[in-house]
């Protein structure tokens, strides 16, 4: 299978004042195209930092990250932004919607930075919101929406630039289990339509959706 993301001996070290904190300690892994990968680990295991690496939000202290065969571990911040904008869609635990914008405007935002023409932007956003069942709620602001609805807006937003990869950080963390199930099913559905999905969670229940489980503990892959 073709690897869409490859990590080779990736480490990330932070300095808290003068104290050196090694969050990731030489992680090597690969995620195939059309995988539904679950990065599983307890809090403090380094799984969020790992997610930042695979989603091009941050670069490693050492090691190499390849996205579709291209080395992205030394890119500048603007180059990373470009890669994120084109290839990666984000779904966050806190939804991270812009509160003063409507659902529709939130979905349009990523397309603006890619220079997509106005008519197409709006049509795309409407279609995406309809596809997650929010055709009636497009003009509502996030505070007028339920948690599940917010997360569906976020999923629609993550798809705005038609990315290969969807990265979700604890997507079910802030919603009830039934809604969580629905969100995971939407992701599963996207996976079946050909997208690579990477979900970070501490919730072992979610394993049933994934075809690949990466367990992480204390900054290392847990092979047991």
């Amino acid at each position: 299978m073709e690897k869409i993301i490859e990590l080779q001996d990736v480490s990330k070290t932070y300095f808290l004042g003068k104290i050196k904190v090694e969050v990731l300690k030489g992680i090597t892994l690969g995620i195939n195209k059309k995988d539904f990968a679950l990065i599983l680990g307890p809090s403090g295991s380094g799984k969020s930092t790992l997610l930042n690496m695979v989603s091009c939000l941050d670069i490693p202290t050492s090691g190499k990250i390849k996205l579709e065969g291209k080395d992205v571990s030394k890119l500048s911040e603007d180059e990373l932004a470009e890669v994120r904008g084109k290839k990666i869609g984000f779904v966050f635990q806190q939804f991270n919607l812009l509160t003063h914008l409507t659902a529709l405007e939130n979905v349009i935002i990523p397309t603006i930075f890619q220079g997509i023409p106005k008519e197409e932007r709006e049509k795309r956003a409407r279609d995406l919101l309809s596809s997650v069942g929010l055709q009636e709620r497009m003009d509502h602001r996030p505070k007028e929406l339920s948690g599940g609805e917010c997360q569906r807006v976020a999923i629609a937003r993550s798809l705005a630039n038609n990315p290969e990869i969807i990265v979700a950080d604890e997507p079910t963390g802030n919603i009830d289990s039934k809604t969580g199930e629905m969100i995971m099913n939407i992701l599963k559905d996207l996976n079946e339509k050909g997208r690579t999905i990477i979900v970070v969670t501490h919730d072992t229940e979610l394993q049933k959706f994934a075809n690949k489980i990466i367990k992480i503990k204390d900054g290392e892959i847990d092979d047991k």
Partner: peptide, 12 residues
């Protein structure tokens, strides 16, 4: 942070 995550560059 959100804008940057979804692809905004410095100039944006």
């Amino acid at each position: 942070g959100i804008l940057k995550a979804v692809g905004a560059r410095r100039k944006h």
